[in-house]
Design a binder for these strands. Structure first.
Lengths: 1380, 357
DNA sequence: TAGGTAATTAGGGATATAAGTACTAGTCAAGAA
DNA sequence: CCCGTGACTACAGACAATATCCCTAATTACCTG
């Protein structure tokens, strides 16, 4: 048990040093950029004309400011993290934290307090303080509501600290919470007394009141002033914002406590505001208004358009008014343009009005965004209900729409959930009843389940299951484990959002806004001002809810899923096999079943076939889960690891993989303000506004509704698969197997096309909902820093179709250069991207006719666009280009089209820059060149040559593949080669490419892939020597690190003690490789047990993955840095910027500027010697760590070490473990480093393996000599070979001494049917040829292997970095094809 | 006729090391005891001298095959084995058995048997399924993981009555690891009743012929399979000391049942599906485990077979299983297909993958 | 009412599951003799 | 302690085996002085 004092001294992370403070200036550069292609000189002068990066001090000068987990045992500094990771209560910890939170929110204060006391023992101080303050706040609020005072809360604050929490005092925030609550007391006089009392208590702890006013958002100005006057606090102790001089204007709304309402404030406010909005909108000229403000659209999946109308209707009815749905929602009319031309139409107005309307639009969108986040679930439900009622009104009970089912299920489920709630309550109340198995489980998940209202729980469950069905991989089923966890997670997220909404204003309950003040705005500007003020009231406090442990999610989820399965029924019809009559029956819509895969059971949930069929067919309206949709307003700027993006949903900054280690590093970096540039970069990405390309959408929609196959859209499959007839019962097993295989293939095909159709349906539906809307994609990052859009399904990172559907909201005049770039862009999309720019422009100019045709008759024309590798994007360009060229002044044309600039083999670009590798630089366009270099084409050409050679020499496989080796075949393997792909992996990659090529016999695929993989490796080996050196260095470092132990390793923590590879990107983002071996266990739920890992526990690292993952991850962290850096600079220079990792997008007009920026960013990034810096970081980060080094067993030193171990073993009385050596060696080093000469002497006397070796000895000299490894041919492989390359059939024939008969040939063929025996397809001669390829590989390495040595723990050092070449990355400045 | 009593030590070491690597199959090596076993089997009543063939797979040391062959005198004894060393060894060991013909093929492959039949290596008579086929005796050494797989396939054939079992009820004598034998042999009342044993029980009569009976260092009996003693046929005790790799082995005599009329009313694929799925929840009452058969199954079966709903899957009798099969066959809403299509082939769904360069 | 013992249960670890091993070879790590 | 055997096979977005038996620890029930 830890005393309060020691708790206080614990720190999570030690700051190693803080030398320099970074500053940056965010002044945008307004430099004009020279623009002409005939002008080969670069737009920027490399030296003097750099774009303004505003002194972004990218990281490398920051060495010494790393986040390093300090784990020095001897200092007695247990970082919280290691404590929580290794605490024996660790498993309890996360459970207790989320349980306390749930109990508080559920209003169960008695239990909450009890668990809080329990939690004290196992949580960190920070966690605990937050929990206790949460409790205090909610408790005080409750008391205030019930009794009008908060005396009990106050007395708890006074006494509990001593009684329950070992004297851990409350922090100032706790007092602020009470003070703010006291300010809400109706009885002002009593309120003042309480305030005084609280303050008196506070002064017992602290003298200055300054801290009290430091919590943003808790106290309003007026509250603060009141406290100041009541407690007579000196003005000097107040922050500026609370001083008298900064008094805000009197608010337009009166804040009254409305205990009866539990509606979130923002909703209440927006509803109240609707009149004002209506007024504003009514003043917009008709021409603008027509664009969709009032117009109802027949399709409204998510409720956005519902909101459009409900805003108008709310004032009268106080309830959302449903839009009137027209006829079937198919056809072209649906593509209403919404606000698409808002700006254009606005530009017709006088300027001052423009500004006003823009502001109105902004506010309008903000309101809708809030409603979207707050009410989307309800709106989906309303839609179901509406359809259901329509059905009733029709008087026809046959279900025509999925929604009608959904509403029935929703209702039935709600009832069941209410019963479940009652049961939970009964159990919670029943004190002395002994809980049985199911009761115990109920008690465990009950508090969580009850956090949401039953109807909401049900809606979430239904939506989530439908979504999983559509996207969960299996067509007619989903993994149970995934389903229950996803539902559980979704419920938690909804709870989090609700809490955020609830707390949004000072966390002090709901208010009734003064409607009168809003409904009669005197004039337009006053209305605007009102609306603006109200929006500012929505400031959401940073609040982070603990994540529920997975087992809780699973239990909550499974409860809901099983309720769903219990009540959801569909009517199905089938033919009775006996009577041959049609029978109809009500069956569960979803079944719980199992499958075996490799002998292991897999729980799956399946929707009934008939219902599943519906989902892929019916418009996906109202089954879209609205939790992470694109936003209507700019995402909230990122300000911390937990805050940014959505306003009322918690989306984390980083997608961590259940790794506390990652989270802790991130939090610490965040705390230290290291992530400002990351935030800024992400904000730029988030600020890019998008709109659905409605013309592309219309084409897509038409194609979709035809239900025919089109490009990558599979045709609508019939509900029932037509299987070939089953072979007769006594058929040969071979026939039976072949039949089964054929069936399974059919099933799989149906499955993939089904899920593709579902996926496309989903995307279309989102697109349809957002048509004509300005939308934004909030972004977050993976653990390496790569950015991703948070909204799933439809975003610009998706496939060609998604990208084709999206364009920028903002339109920019393209200018001459922009027109060129747009043409180049089209050429690129058509796959013509290897030529110089001029040729690409020419490529497009030569096809203008086709392009116009595609734009005018996309479906019934010549369909030029469809032949492009990226057809939908090509179509979008066709439209845009046609418009531009036809406009009177093409260069004035305002374009919204994003134009891409893609890195040419971005990974190798970074490698070449890291190594200063001139040759490599030229291959990947770091070096300026006349034409773009393409490394993939180069490799495929070289491979083709080799294939041709082999073919000429009679190699059968080579003959098959002669002339078939295209760029695409080798591309992936070439790229991944420097990331450490193995022969097996490359072979698989090539195989999957070969499958798509026509004219290759089935049986040659495999041997061909193997053959080509070998050739690719052979070509690449000599090509990327510089990159390989660095890659090897990365690998060696990662290997040493992942096998090393920190100095405080003990026998108990030796498992977890091994080390993950951690580094800091130049932007200051700490990257932690999460690869560990998770231990998983079974958790019993209502449906089945699920097998999940225990996230709160620390698992041993997986050195293999750490090593294999480091090279790609490091390079990716660099390209992420480059991207964010470019984003940041683009943002500061006023460009719209979007990116897909190594493909950067902007308006056509701005491509030149973007190119200049991204090149500069790359130069900036690589100016310093990153590899050396990395080495220095490692040395600093892993100072004092030890790793096992193998020394030659036969050496004298090894003998001595072994002798020492024998002695040491006697002393210990047990076997010596490596961690013992770490400990003793650490002790010795500490003594040697001591300033006390006595201690130093003591240290010198100590004998350890390292002292035997000698601290200054060159370890390399101790390596065991290389050993010859005898090549042991595997018994198994020799067993698998057919006798002398003969088939078994021939063996039998020969053994029996039967001569080949005339009908032999046909017989043997039929016997081999289905069995793939490659040996046969190759004559012996050909096989030799393959051998020859293998033999040409350097044999020495294969046979001479590092011998096994004696492992000795030595201090962790790193090999020298490979010498850097003389390529100057600044040359890049003139390289036009770097990104192109 | 030379009787070579062959202990483990008598096997040439070269052969021994070859066996150890990756072969994993054990084998009984006590020739005298093998003879005893053959005698006990009393094969002569069914298999007349020179009027039947033996098909032996994976002979391993070949001791059992030798004894069997010598004492039953088949017209031909085909041995399927892939180890190089076996052939050299066999040449000297079984030189005196002229009808023995080893073939170097992989007995795991189905098409091997097709070829054997095609070339007349074995030529069993095609007989109706009303009794043991006296023209072919299959034996083998299924004492590794692969062997268990093979056993499952042989048992499946007894259900389909196809492949080798297409010739009538072909008797099979298989050496198995004791644990595997136990799994197949479980009786109705055993809690551990499983898929394989149910299949076996439905279509064949299985008897243990020889069984390990070890004593440990203290002389106590090591309890291996406990059920043979209760069976009518008292198995012969053998010791794992006398086996290759010192493993616990059992020799099972599998005699396929004569065909019954219900077999025509069910689909074997459905039968396998039903058994497989019901045994996912072996201890649950049928009312629960039946749900794994498909959507709505619980209602349909509760209506058709109410008397079975409270029974535990693992305690269903043959007759009750047959009822379930028949009922399933007539179910209008049975699933469209009965395959467990693994989701392992999540491979390139072309348009779903996001395109990164 | 306290305490001791019997009885029950919860929970963790071990094991079996299915059934054409898809293909194959080098490397690294846990495990067993 | 050494050696044969087994798992994995570039990274990321996007994670997932389950039922049952058997034994032990822990808790409850029950009994008695």
């Amino acid at each position: 048990m830890l005393s309060a004092a020691s708790r206080g001294s614990r720190r999570c992370v030690a700051v190693v040093a803080s030398t320099s403070r970074r500053t940056f200036i965010s002044k945008p550069s307004n430099r004009s950029i020279v623009s002409s292609f005939s002008d080969i000189t670069p737009p920027f002068d490399p030296v003097s004309d750099a774009p303004n990066f505003g002194k972004v001090n990218i990281g490398l000068q920051r060495a010494g400011k790393l986040v390093i987990m300090n784990e020095l045992l001897d200092d007695g500094e247990h970082p919280d993290m290691t404590l929580t990771m290794r605490n024996q209560f660790a498993r309890n910890r996360v459970h207790l934290i989320s349980l306390v939170d749930a109990l508080i929110s559920g209003g169960n204060f008695t239990r909450a307090r009890k668990v809080l006391v329990e939690a004290y023992e196992v949580t960190t101080q920070e966690e605990f303080t937050r929990l206790r303050n949460d409790y205090l706040q909610e408790y005080a609020l409750k008391e205030l509501k019930d009794t009008g005072t908060i005396s009990q809360a106050l007395s708890w604050l006074v006494t509990s600290s001593l009684e329950d929490f070992k004297g851990l005092p409350f922090d100032p925030r706790a007092f602020v919470i009470l003070l703010a609550t006291a300010c809400r007391m109706q009885d002002r006089l009593r309120g003042d007394n309480v305030i005084h009392e609280i303050y008196a208590e506070y002064t017992k702890q602290r003298t200055s009141a300054t801290e009290l006013f430091g919590y943003e958002g808790l106290l309003s100005y007026h509250d603060a002033r009141r406290i100041v006057s009541v407690c007579m606090i000196p003005e000097a102790q107040l922050p500026r914002s609370f001083q008298l001089s900064s008094a805000p204007p009197a608010p337009d709304i009166t804040r009254e406590l409305d205990p009866s309402s539990d509606e979130p404030l923002s909703v209440a406010l927006v509803k109240a505001q609707s009149e004002a909005v209506k007024n504003i909108l009514s003043q917009i000229p008709a021409s603008v208004q027509k664009t969709g403000f009032e117009e109802l659209n027949p399709v409204d999946s998510i409720g956005i358009k519902l909101l459009r109308s409900s805003l108008k209707g709310i004032a009268e009815s106080e309830k959302p008014v449903l839009p009137v749905y027209g006829k079937a929602d198919k056809g072209e009319s649906e593509a209403d343009d919404g606000f698409l031309n808002f700006e254009a139409q606005l530009s017709l107005l006088p300027e001052d009005q423009q500004a006003q309307y823009r502001e109105a639009f902004e506010i309008y969108n903000q309101q809708r965004q809030r409603l979207l986040e707050a009410l989307a679930l309800e709106s989906a439900r309303e839609r179901w209900k509406y359809d259901y009622e329509q059905m009733l009104a029709r008087g026809d009970m046959s279900v025509t729409n999925v929604n009608e089912y959904l509403w029935e299920w929703q209702q039935a489920m709600t009832q069941q959930v209410e019963q479940e709630f009652a049961e939970i309550d009964r159990l919670l109340d029943a004190k002395n009843e002994k809980p049985s198995g199911s009761a115990r489980r109920r008690l465990r998940y009950g508090p969580y389940l009850k956090l949401l209202k039953p109807d909401k729980l049900c809606t979430i469950t239904i939506l989530e299951l439908l979504r999983l069905h559509a996207t969960g991989g299996l067509a007619d089923g989903m993994r149970t484990a995934r389903a229950v966890l996803t539902v559980g997670r979704s419920i938690q997220m909804e709870y989090n959002s609700e809490q955020l909404l609830r707390r949004e204003v000072s966390g002090l309950g709901a208010y009734k806004p003064n409607k009168a003040a809003l409904q009669n705005p005197q004039d337009f500007s006053r209305a605007l001002a009102n609306a603006k003020r109200l929006n500012e009231e929505f400031k959401v406090l940073d609040s982070w809810k603990p994540e529920w442990p997975d087992d809780i999610k699973a239990e909550v989820g499974s409860t809901m899923v099983s309720i769903f399965m219990h009540v959801a029924k569909v009517a199905v019809t089938a033919t009775d096999p006996v009577t041959s009559k049609e029978v109809t029956s009500l069956v569960p819509a979803m079944t719980h079943s199992y499958q075996y895969s490799n002998g292991m059971k897999l729980g799956i949930l399946k929707f009934h076939r008939d219902f599943a069929d519906r989902i892929s067919k019916d418009p996906a309206n109202s089954i879209i889960n609205p939790q992470f949709l694109p936003m209507l307003v700019q995402p909230k700027s990122w300000t911390s690891w937990a805050s940014g993006g959505y306003h009322f949903s918690n989306a984390p900054l980083m997608r961590t993989k259940h790794s506390i280690e990652q989270q802790e590093y991130l939090k610490e970096a965040c705390r230290r303000n290291d992530l400002q540039h990351v935030y800024e970069g992400l904000d730029v990405l988030g600020k890019a506004s998008w709109v659905i390309n409605s013309r592309v959408f219309r084409v897509l929609s038409k194609v979709w509704n035809s239900e025919k196959e089109f490009l990558e859209i599979p045709a609508k499959a019939p509900a029932k698969i037509e299987f070939p007839p089953e072979p007769p019962k006594d058929a040969d097993p071979v026939a039976r197997r072949d039949w089964a295989r054929a069936c399974k293939l059919l099933i799989m095909d149906a499955r993939t096309s089904h899920s593709q159709r579902c996926d496309i349906n989903y995307k279309l539906e989102i697109g349809r909902a957002f048509i004509g809307e300005r939308m934004y994609f909030p972004h977050n990052i993976d653990f390496r820093g790569r950015a991703y859009a948070i909204p799933p399904h439809l975003n610009h990172l998706g496939n060609d179709m998604c990208r084709g559907l999206l364009m920028f909201w903002e339109a920019k005049s393209i200018g001459q250069r922009g027109l060129q770039w747009m043409k180049i862009h089209l050429a690129n999309l058509c796959g013509f991207d290897k030529a110089d720019f001029q040729s690409r422009v020419q490529f497009v100019d030569d096809r203008l006719d086709d392009i116009f045709d595609s734009a005018d008759h996309p479906l019934d024309g010549r369909r030029f666009w469809m032949e492009a590798p990226d057809p939908w994007q090509a179509l979008a360009v066709c439209f845009e280009l046609a418009d531009a060229l036809r406009s009177p002044e093409p260069t004035e044309f305002k374009s919204r089209l994003p134009v891409h600039q893609d890195g040419t083999c971005n990974g190798l670009q970074h490698y070449a820059a890291l190594g200063g590798d001139a040759e490599g630089a030229a291959q990947v366009n770091l070096e300026p060149g006349e034409r773009p270099a393409d490394i993939y084409t180069y490799v495929s050409d070289r491979v083709s040559e080799l294939v041709a050679q082999d073919a000429a020499n009679g190699n059968a496989i080579a003959k098959i593949f002669e002339g078939k080796v295209k760029r695409k075949v080798v591309k992936q393997s070439v790229m991944t080669n420097v990331y450490g792909v193995t022969y097996v992996g490359a072979r698989a990659q090539i195989l999957s490419q070969l499958k798509d090529i026509d004219g290759i016999p089935e049986e040659a695929l495999w041997s061909g892939a193997a053959y080509l993989a070998k050739l690719v490796f052979k070509v690449v080996r000599n090509l990327f020597s510089g990159a390989h050196l660095i890659q090897d260095w990365f690998g060696e470092c990662a290997k040493r690190i992942s096998k090393s132990f920190p100095p405080n390793t003990t026998a108990e923590n030796v498992k977890e003690g091994m080390t993950a590879v951690v580094w800091t990107t130049p932007l200051g983002l700490p990257v932690v490789q999460p690869y560990r071996n998770p231990t998983r266990k079974q958790v019993t739920t209502n449906l089945q047990t699920v097998y999940i890992s225990e996230p709160s526990e620390m698992h041993p690292v997986n050195p293999r993955k750490q090593q294999a993952g480091f090279p790609p991850n490091y390079i990716h962290s660099l390209d992420a840095t480059h991207m964010l850096l470019s984003a940041l600079a683009c943002g500061r220079n006023g460009l719209t910027f979007a990116a897909v990792h190594d493909s950067y997008w902007t308006h056509a007009a701005d491509v030149d500027r973007m190119n200049a920026i991204l090149r500069d960013a790359f130069i900036k990034l690589h100016e310093g010697d990153l590899v050396t810096k990395l080495k220095e970081e490692f040395e600093q980060r892993y100072k004092g760590y030890m790793y096992p080094f193998e020394i030659n067993r036969t050496s004298a030193v090894a003998k001595k070490v072994m002798e020492w171990r024998r002695q040491f073993r006697k002393k210990l009385g047990r076997a010596v473990q490596l961690c013992d050596e770490v400990r003793i060696e650490t002790k010795r080093r500490r003594l040697l480093d001591s300033s006390d000469p006595l201690k130093r002497a003591e240290g010198e006397k100590m004998i350890t393996p390292m002292s035997i070796i000698g601290d200054d000895t060159d370890l390399e000299s101790l390596r065991p000599p290389p050993m010859k490894v005898k090549l042991t041919p595997r018994q198994l492989s020799s067993e698998n070979e057919e006798l002398g390359g003969l088939t078994s059939d021939e063996v039998i024939r020969k053994t029996l001494g039967i001569e080949k008969t005339t009908d032999e040939l046909s017989v043997s063929e039929s016997a081999d049917d289905g069995e793939m025996e490659f040996d046969e397809s190759l004559s012996g001669e050909d096989a030799d040829e393959v051998e020859s390829v293998i033999e040409e590989m350097p044999v020495q390495e294969a046979i001479l292997k590092q011998g096994r040595g004696l492992p000795v723990m030595v201090p962790l050092t790193f090999p020298e970095v490979p010498p850097k070449g003389d390529f100057d990355v600044k040359k890049l400045k003139n390289s036009l094809y770097f990104f192109s | 006729m030379s009787k070579i009593a062959l202990g483990a030590g008598a096997i040439p070491s070269s052969f021994k090391s070859a066996l150890k690597r990756g072969y994993e199959r054990s084998s009984y090596t006590n020739y005298d005891r093998c003879v005893e076993i053959v005698k006990k089997l009393d094969l002569g009543t069914t298999f007349k001298k020179n009027e039947f063939e033996i098909l032996e797979i994976y002979p391993c040391t070949g001791v059992w095959g030798r004894a069997l062959s010598q004492y039953t005198n088949p017209s031909r004894h085909i041995v399927l084995e892939r180890l190089d060393n076996y052939f050299a060894w066999n040449e000297q060991y079984n030189a005196d058995i002229p009808w023995m013909l080893p073939i170097k093929v992989d007995a795991y492959k189905w098409k091997v048997y097709t070829s054997l039949l095609k070339y007349g290596a074995i030529s069993p008579k095609k007989l109706p399924h009303d009794g043991i086929n006296p023209s072919l005796l299959v034996t083998g050494n299924l004492t590794n993981k692969q062997g268990l797989q093979l056993l499952g396939q042989f048992l499946s054939c007894t259900a389909y009555r196809n492949w080798l079992q297409a010739y009538g009820c072909v008797r099979m004598l298989f050496w198995l690891r004791a644990v595997d034998a136990q799994r197949v042999m479980l009786s109705l009342h055993d809690k551990k009743m499983n898929r394989l044993s149910t299949l076996a029980r439905l279509f064949s009569e299985i008897k243990p012929i020889a069984c390990v009976h070890n004593t440990d260092s203290k002389g106590d009996v090591v309890p291996v399979p406990d059920l043979w003693s209760t069976r009518s046929s008292q198995p012969i005790d053998i010791s794992s000391e006398d086996t290759y790799l010192k493993s616990d082995l059992v020799l099972l005599d599998i005699q396929p049942r004569a065909k019954e009329s219900w077999e025509d009313e069910v689909n074997i694929l459905e039968l396998e599906y039903v058994i497989r799925n019901l045994f996912i929840l072996p201890t649950a009452p049928l009312s629960t485990s039946i749900t794994t058969l498909g959507s709505g199954a619980e209602y349909y079966f509760a209506e058709k077979l109410p008397q079975l709903m409270d029974k535990i899957t693992a305690k269903l009798t043959n007759e009750e299983f047959v009822l379930v099969f028949k009922t399933f066959n007539k179910w209008p809403f049975k699933p469209d297909h009965l395959f467990d299509v693994g989701n392992d082939v999540d491979a390139n769904t072309p348009s779903m993958i996001t395109e990164f360069s």
